[in-house]
Amino acid sequence: MSLNSIFQYFIPKDKKFFPLFEKDSANLISLGEKLVEALNTEDLTRRKELFKDIEDLEHTGDEITHQIHLELSKNFITPFDREDIHRLASALDDIADYIHGSASRIDLYQVTEITPPIKELASLILQACQDLNKAIHELRDLKNVRIIADSCVRINSIENQADYVFDKAVSELFMYEKDAVKLIKYKEILSALEDATDMCEDAANVLESILVKNA
């Protein structure tokens, strides 16, 4: 048993940070689900309602992030490295921001035709959020480190898939889209969606850092 593991044994069980991170990652799944539903419905009124739900969920995420930072300022003893707690909270907040940003761009740009690459990127975001949620639930005792590691590997793979989808979609836009304004709108939406998967990878990198430090 490592010295760090022995030290962790004597630390009181955390009742603040883990529940907040689990709540945050569950909120991300809700955001991903709303995004996928919004982009797969032809009912524009329903899509508008779902975009409003996404905005509300993003505000919920902001509140959770604020609570995490507040607890960080109040507690001297933390379940793992303070910097990693801050980095993980920020990464999860960024994911919510980019999901909301993607939905906002579609709404503000009045884009009604949702292309297959946009739908595919939304689906990849949801998959990454589900894997993050699974990994974060294993942080409480770090007994199933393999589950966390496997989730991180899958998230990295998802981000690579998203890169491919994004690059191919943008390439086709420049190749076939003759309307410059439409091209810019779609490129901005695709970019925001792809950025969301980058943020998922950032969160996975933090989780991997936590594993290494607490092995």
Rank of each mutant, 00 (worst) to 15 (best):
residue 2 S to P: 04
residue 2 S to W: 07
residue 4 N to W: 12
residue 5 S to I: 13
residue 6 I to E: 11
residue 7 F to A: 10
residue 7 F to V: 11
residue 8 Q to A: 11
residue 8 Q to R: 15
residue 10 F to E: 00
residue 10 F to C: 00
residue 11 I to V: 04
residue 13 K to T: 04
residue 14 D to A: 14
residue 15 K to A: 09
residue 16 K to N: 11
residue 16 K to H: 11
residue 17 F to W: 02
residue 20 L to D: 10
residue 21 F to R: 02
residue 25 S to V: 15
residue 27 N to E: 13
residue 30 S to G: 10
residue 31 L to K: 05
residue 37 E to K: 11
residue 46 R to S: 13
residue 58 E to V: 09
residue 58 E to I: 03
residue 59 H to I: 15
residue 61 G to Y: 01
residue 62 D to E: 12
residue 62 D to H: 13
residue 65 T to K: 13
residue 70 L to P: 02
residue 72 L to T: 08
residue 72 L to W: 07
residue 76 F to Y: 10
residue 77 I to G: 02
residue 82 R to C: 00
residue 84 D to E: 03
residue 86 H to L: 13
residue 87 R to S: 03
residue 89 A to I: 12
residue 91 A to S: 15
residue 93 D to V: 02
residue 98 Y to R: 11
residue 100 H to G: 14
residue 103 A to I: 05
residue 105 R to P: 02
residue 105 R to V: 02
residue 106 I to M: 10
residue 108 L to F: 06
residue 111 V to Y: 12
residue 113 E to L: 09
residue 116 P to S: 08
residue 119 K to D: 04
residue 121 L to Y: 12
residue 122 A to T: 06
residue 126 L to E: 06
residue 128 A to W: 00
residue 129 C to W: 02
residue 130 Q to W: 00
residue 132 L to P: 04
residue 137 H to V: 07
residue 139 L to I: 14
residue 146 R to Q: 10
residue 147 I to T: 13
residue 148 I to C: 00
residue 150 D to I: 06
residue 151 S to Y: 09
residue 153 V to F: 14
residue 159 E to G: 01
residue 164 Y to E: 04
residue 169 A to S: 15
residue 173 L to A: 12
residue 176 Y to M: 08
residue 177 E to M: 14
residue 181 V to E: 08
residue 181 V to W: 05
residue 187 K to L: 01
residue 190 L to S: 01
residue 197 T to S: 00
residue 198 D to L: 05
residue 199 M to E: 06
residue 202 D to A: 12
residue 202 D to H: 14
residue 203 A to K: 05
residue 205 N to E: 06
residue 209 S to G: 09
residue 214 N to I: 04
